[in-house]
Simulated scan of single mutants.
Amino acid sequence: MKKGVLLVNLGSPDSTEVKDVKRYLDQFLMDERVIDVPYLVRAFIVRGIILRTRPKKSAEAYKRIWWEEGSPLIVLTERLQKKVQQLVDIPVSIAMRYGNPSLEAGMRELASQGVTEILLVPLYPQFAMATTETILVLAEKLRSTKFPNIRFTEIPAFYSHPDYVRVLSESIKEALQEKDWNHILFSYHGVPERHIKKSDITKSHCKIDGQCCQSSSPAHQYCYRHQCYETTKQVAEYLGLKEGTYSTSFQSRLGRDPWLQPYTDQTIENMAHQGVNKLAVVTPAFVSDCLETLEEIGMEGKDEFLENGGSEFHLIPCLNDRNDWAQVLSRWVSEWAAEPESVTHV
């Protein structure tokens, strides 16, 4: 069997034109694992309400962060792919869960090179039904209907893998080396609380009460909230951060249902009011800078902090195409490729 690798990221509109942003948002928000309500209700919410006004606003936001080469997320993923490809002996392709290049296109590119066994690498450190799970579900659907001769090996969530913790920690250390700061905020993408409970394989452990994430349970294998807090904890230990100098929050909520708290925007405002005048923010739910990091945090979050009394705000870049991150991925790939059978080693 010939092996290949598919690096899968979230995705991006093809351009900053409203029509392209609308098409992208429709595909994203109509995913039943993103807005997990019955189809007709989801269609009413998305196509009857959100897509009437949101695309124009989102298009303006994308224009603020768009690069000359295109979408930052796409460009950075391409750069990462090229670096990994230079370090391994098997084909490496990229795909996006939403937008282009599609998951089907990525699988087809590998299949055209004779690949029959694919290592799927969702570029999300923490597992969530709206990120990792939706990639795996669509990939299996495509495999069974269009690529029946292909086998998958899925790389598990790497939120606490020593290699990931090390490169994330080193990236933070480098970014703050010559910066003066009072507090580091670990801001993760938010999800509805019901997603946490739906992902609970024990059907009883996750109560989101401040204690369940700290007590051992098989539920943690798929608990996004636990995995976020564990990433923060391990990075803080690696960097030797003192208690009270860092915290965790969750950004980007939609609708009126309760989402994971504390909310990032409220946290940033409160910190400015409470005397934190030099704030650094890192976004470990993303490995590539994108709209949610560059615009929501780097622009909106910064403005909010400064307008409420803060004096310095620093957005720490994602891992992007850092050499040490590419080396970690290439080592995971090479170890998998060397196995005689499909073995998930990470």
Rank of each mutant, 00 (worst) to 15 (best):
125 P>Y: 01
198 K>R: 15
114 G>Q: 01
190 G>Y: 05
158 F>I: 08
107 M>R: 00
118 I>T: 14
134 T>I: 02
141 K>H: 10
196 I>F: 09
120 L>R: 00
179 K>G: 03
168 L>A: 09
138 L>P: 04
141 K>M: 07
132 T>K: 12
127 F>G: 02
151 R>Q: 02
105 A>M: 07
138 L>R: 08
162 P>F: 10
133 E>I: 07
198 K>I: 15
184 I>P: 04
163 D>F: 05
189 H>Y: 01
156 P>M: 03
103 L>M: 12
115 V>R: 02
111 A>N: 03
98 Y>N: 06
200 D>R: 11
106 G>Y: 07
124 Y>F: 10
138 L>C: 04
96 M>L: 15
103 L>F: 07
136 L>T: 06
198 K>L: 15
155 I>P: 04
142 L>M: 09
156 P>I: 04
122 P>G: 10
156 P>Y: 07
154 E>K: 05
137 V>Y: 06
136 L>W: 09
195 H>R: 10
162 P>S: 13
180 D>Q: 14
170 E>A: 12
180 D>Y: 11
101 P>N: 00
152 F>R: 00
148 P>V: 01
168 L>D: 05
110 L>E: 00
105 A>Q: 08
96 M>V: 14
147 F>W: 06
173 K>R: 15
143 R>D: 02
198 K>S: 15
105 A>E: 09
169 S>V: 13
162 P>R: 13
99 G>L: 08
128 A>C: 04
118 I>F: 14
179 K>Q: 11
137 V>S: 09
180 D>C: 13
101 P>D: 00
144 S>A: 05
159 Y>R: 04
143 R>G: 01
156 P>D: 04
105 A>I: 01
